[in-house]
């Protein structure tokens, strides 16, 4: 049921990622101040944006679950958040490498974007402990959905309040009105990398959904065999 279209999707995401990295290394110009290390930007920023998008998607499916009570929407919300937590770890790791290379420290507190991402990540790190501390499956789904909705609203609010806390901004703001002052070739490469990462997220999401679905079907069949 979730397996349909998985093969072309996988091929497309592999192709997009290969294309993105080819562009990163052979097409995008070297950054004038930062040199080669700036290339991590094409990995770090798509990871972060896709992770945040995944958290919000989890919230949207949480709302859908609360309205319909269907198990599928809960699974979609759960898998989106669960994958986004993994991407969040990768975002923090690549961000720290970039920070060490370009600012000279592994962590900088006067960076609203870093701090806000960390707070959001810490909140979502509680998703699984909360979910699996509830035994009743219906209640588990409902409570996880409530958490997903609260978290989905918290993401923009947290970024806003932390950004207000610091007047001076060093962190490059990629998606402002002017395109971050990047030359067109860099922006194009970034967009391809973002598309590749989004495709990868969707592919992994569908893979995990189909595997969970298959496992549930298998368990149901086993029960039927055992009772027959």
């Amino acid at each position: 049921m979730y397996g349909r279209g998985l093969k072309p999707l996988s091929i497309a995401s592999v192709a997009a990622l290969i294309g993105a990295f080819a562009l990163v290394f052979f097409y995008a110009p070297l950054d004038a101040d930062q040199g080669f290390i700036q290339k991590i930007f094409y990995l770090h920023v798509p990871l972060a944006l896709v992770a945040l998008g995944g958290f919000v998607t989890g919230g949207v499916y949480g709302i859908k679950h609360l309205r319909s009570g269907s198990r599928e929407h809960d699974m979609k919300s759960y898998v989106a958040i669960h994958l986004s937590i993994i991407l969040g770890v990768a975002t923090l790791a690549t961000g720290m490498i970039w920070a060490k290379a370009s600012w000279g420290a592994w962590w900088v507190w006067d960076e609203p974007t870093l701090v806000a991402f960390l707070i959001v990540f810490l909140l979502y790190a509680c998703y699984q402990p909360l979910r699996f501390a509830i035994e009743d499956p219906d209640r588990q789904m409902r409570y996880a959905a409530v958490f997903a909705v609260i978290g989905g609203a918290f993401v923009p609010l947290c970024f806003m309040s932390v950004r207000f806390a610091q007047a001076a901004l060093v962190h490059p703001r990629v998606l402002d009105q002017t395109g971050g002052g990047m030359p067109g070739s860099m922006f194009f490469t970034f967009l391809v990398a973002l598309a590749g990462m989004t495709l990868l997220f969707v592919t992994l999401w569908k893979f995990e959904l189909s595997s969970k679905h298959a496992r549930a079907q298998l368990a149901a069949l086993r029960r039927r065999v055992a009772s027959a």
Binding site: L122, L130, R139, Y143, F147
Partner: peptide, 27 residues
């Protein structure tokens, strides 16, 4: 209300509340 129905209520409350209330502490 989220935490009271879980097995580890005393753990879940601070873990959830601290990040959620951080904007209030900042402001």
């Amino acid at each position: 209300a989220l935490a009271v129905q879980t097995r580890a209520r005393d753990l879940i409350v601070p873990l959830l509340a601290l990040p959620l209330l951080l904007p209030i502490v900042i402001a």
